[in-house]
Design a protein around this nucleic acid. Structure first.
Lengths: 342, 342
DNA sequence: AACACGAACGGAAACGTTTCCATCCCTACC
DNA sequence: GGTAGGGATGGAAACGTTTCCGTTCGTGTT
């Protein structure tokens, strides 16, 4: 079926009876080629099942048509969804995406030491991935555009949500329901420099302050990101003399873990304790979890579009903040006291 | 900090006082270079912050050091986890990963028509992605190694689980608990040629047969993959005059949806109805879902290793089947009748 | 002392495009 | 009718490596 050798552009040119220069122009859609000639070239190319050698083309052109996407946790929904968004628009634009998983600190050091993407891509997008100063300097060495998604970033064009506002939406919902003793389970990624989700914590204190409620340090527990960790945190909160009536978790996974702990303790959600998360993870709908939705895939798409604009030379918008939205489901309700009072 | 131009190998050679041929050999670790010379070259390269131009190198070498990973649904845990596994070992081996999301049928047609990865990669791995005959012929055109992961595939080396056995483990568990009226919610991917999860369905009938139980067609419902669809399916089952006492779902997400329907109907799990899934999705643990675990990331890793072996010339093992394992949690229990009887 | 041999190295031809520049020819305008 | 101008084309120089050969030189053998 396939004859052994890949045919080269010279073959195409010869078959079409033109020079390589013309063949190249014809195939690339460059101007200055007669329409009939162009057709002849295309026909020849098709007959030979010809495809350009990307290496040669890129070597000559000096551009790679490739962009690196670096992501800390591929298998977590948040990152995967974002990745899906980015990939979609990049593929649409004819750009190839090179995937780099940079998980733990060691990966991270290795990545910035070796810079494996260097000279391989025209741009890189970092997903929810704070970059410290040293790393910025390394990036600079690559001499390509950088855009950030899902984690605010002053240095590069970015797209993200307003974490503090998202947190406020969650907290205000609990406050509106009448809760006064609200715990926060703050999730941090152990493999990343912190300060990413600071906004979500700020919201907690601000909301309490605005509501005139005191802050009880015991009600704040910080854990590594993850469902199991959320459960542990909830256990800790349940060991208090005066446990909370509501829990604000930094993410849906953490919230899920908290709910498991509550159920195992024989408490029911939301009758005994309300729980709210952030993200609107797909399973949130399946388990009736109240949460604050952020459009994850959309953020990826926007990041992708910024990259495309940047590469096509047009000045892209520097950064975008997408809105979040409270989604009330079945894990939040007024506290028992309030209900009885009503 | 960075002087404008990327330095080329010629610069390195000159600075080290050798020819380009020697510089190239030194940098690649090829034999036939004196140790002192090699050091001198490395030093020069480092001083100039030199990195080879991958395009040029690959053009000359004729190999790309890149492999394509094509995946139908990036943001679903199963695929993302597998991707993470593949990426890990490929990156370890110094191979770059080119990501291709091929979701719906249109993507699919486009992918195989245009073959965008053609001449860009040395191998491609398809994740849970049945390839029909026409598509196989297109792949052949690429002239590279193909390996399949997560979906059995006769044509290419593959890694997967034994779907029928996994299904048997789930069904046998329900049967062991004493259930006799067991429903199956079969999930199919609307964007893919079916026949992928056939084994999971086979298991249902085989298990019932071995247990001497009759098959009730009403107890089998087939839906598109997804949690919401699982809920719908459960609704249908609940509308029967004589609903099942246990539900065997083809995947955890579907099982989760089923559980939501049950809860909304006022039934409790597992007291009224038992539910079991397949996969051991991370949230399964958080919601206490009984399931059959399959090692997803490991499958990706194995697929990656097969690719690496293939590319390094050593004959790799043709295919691998990894074991699955029942994980009993809180959504399965003996049926009410059995309990009362006991 | 002549010779063979191997290690280290350099020259230069690939690899397959893109693109600058020159050439040719045809049309339109004076 | 001559010439300027522009559209279509071809020649050939990049792009930056790798690698095939050939050369040189030092060492060990007879």
């Amino acid at each position: 079926m396939s004859n052994g050798r890949q045919s080269s552009m010279a073959d195409v040119a010869q078959r079409a009876g033109v020079s390589m220069a013309t063949a190249s122009r014809a195939l690339n859609g460059s101007p200055g080629v007669a329409e009939t000639t162009r057709e002849r070239v295309f026909l020849a190319a098709q007959e030979l099942a010809y495809v350009v050698s990307p290496e040669a083309s890129r070597l000559a052109r000096g551009t790679t048509r490739r962009v690196a996407v670096v992501v800390p946790h591929i298998s977590r929904w948040f990152f995967a969804a974002m990745l899906e968004g980015v990939e979609g628009v990049l593929r649409e634009a004819g750009l190839d995406v090179l995937l780099y998983h940079v998980g733990d600190c060691e990966d991270r050091r290795d990545f910035f030491d070796r810079l494996p993407a260097r000279r391989k891509v025209d741009a890189v997008v970092v997903l929810a991935f704070p970059v410290d100063e040293h790393e910025q300097r390394r990036f600079q060495l690559m001499g390509v555009d950088i855009v950030a998604a899902g984690g605010q970033h002053a240095t590069y064009p970015y797209v993200c949500i307003d974490d503090e506002q998202a947190g406020r939406q969650a907290m205000d919902h609990l406050l509106f329901l009448g809760h006064e003793r609200i715990a926060m389970i703050a999730a941090v990624d152990p493999d990343q420099p912190a300060a990413l989700q600071q906004g979500r914590s700020d919201a907690y204190y601000a909301a309490l302050g605005d509501a005139g409620l005191p802050v009880d340090g015991q009600l704040v527990v910080t854990v590594d990101w993850g469902g199991a960790e959320g459960a542990t945190a909830m256990d800790r909160l349940l060991s208090l003399r005066n446990p909370p009536t509501a829990v604000y978790a930094h993410s849906d996974e953490v919230a899920l873990g908290a709910i498991r702990s509550l159920r195992r303790a024989g408490l029911s959600v939301p009758e005994d304790v309300s729980v709210i998360g952030i993200d609107d993870h797909p399973v949130a709908e399946l388990v009736d979890l109240t949460t604050v939705r952020q459009p994850v895939e959309v953020q990826g798409e926007i990041a992708g579009r910024i990259v495309v604009d940047l590469l096509s030379g047009q000045a892209a918008q520097k950064s975008v903040t997408v809105p979040t939205q409270l989604v009330v489901r079945g894990t939040t309700a007024p506290p028992r006291g309030a209900r009885q009072r009503a």
